[in-house]
Simulated scan of single mutants.
Amino acid sequence: MTATELSGPSPAVTARLAEHALSVYSSGIVDDAAAAALAETLPSELAPAESDGAATWAGLIAADGGSPLLGTTRTAPTYPALMWNGARLAAAAPGRQWAPLLAAVAAAAADADPVRVGRAVIAGEAVLDDATELLGADPVAYPTLATLAAATAASLAGPAEGADLVDVLDLAASLQLFVPDAEHASTHGWTAGHAAASGWLAAALPADAITPMPGSVAHTLSAAAGRAVPTADIS
């Protein structure tokens, strides 16, 4: 039996993903009004959590200050708040925009321009499309690719404005979860929350706190795919 050949680390692939995101973010191809509208779609209110588990979870993570837990009067530290909010939004109205939007809002200054936040989200969605193309059909496992989208959006909406995006993407690749089906990886409860929280974390960690493996995006997606990925064919 011949061993499956996987793609090795490829800094060039990560660089191309970052370049594509920066182009979408800064080239002017995204309409300002559409970007601002997207930035403001995060609901300020949600129906109360229906499950006892969600309410218990909120009680465990709640703390004074921090980020709001949507649909409650509580707040929590940013990481668990993003986990909770992502899961709540995925349950209420599944959508690919939630993970990058939550991460971008968490990373941005309180007075950030909504146009900038919206552009960061759209750039994150572009990276999600690129990563989906790299992964291909019928992988061995499904990674939470929205982690890469959220990391991109947080890097662009935050103070670095994408200057650290290559390293952020390589770190985010290692923070993805691998799950057995596509639905769980993209829209299912806590995995959707994980994408928002882990993507934000990849952008929020100080540069000297952890050093990602250069080029890890391609290698990680190849491991999930169970085969080499088409690294020469992305945008």
Results as ranks from 00 to 15, higher is better:
190 W>A: 07
235 S>E: 03
20 H>R: 13
47 A>Y: 09
84 W>C: 02
205 L>D: 00
15 A>T: 14
119 R>W: 14
4 T>L: 14
168 V>Y: 01
186 S>N: 09
60 L>P: 12
154 A>W: 00
78 T>L: 04
162 G>V: 04
143 P>E: 04
31 D>Q: 10
78 T>K: 03
2 T>P: 15
208 D>E: 15
136 G>L: 05
231 T>W: 03
171 L>W: 02
183 E>A: 11
23 S>D: 05
217 V>P: 02
46 L>K: 03
157 A>P: 01
109 A>T: 13
214 P>I: 11
13 V>D: 00
224 A>S: 06
180 P>T: 12
21 A>Q: 00
81 A>W: 01
219 H>L: 07
93 A>W: 09
92 A>D: 15
184 H>M: 14
222 S>K: 01
103 A>M: 04
34 A>Q: 12
121 V>R: 01
219 H>Y: 01
231 T>S: 13
187 T>K: 01
142 Y>N: 02
190 W>E: 05
43 P>K: 00
142 Y>L: 03
151 A>H: 08
128 L>Y: 05
70 L>Q: 00
99 A>T: 06
177 L>K: 02
181 D>T: 14
179 V>H: 06
51 S>F: 13
67 S>P: 01
138 D>S: 14
167 D>L: 05
57 W>N: 00
135 L>V: 02
175 L>I: 07
95 G>V: 07
172 A>R: 03
35 A>L: 07
124 G>A: 09
106 A>R: 04
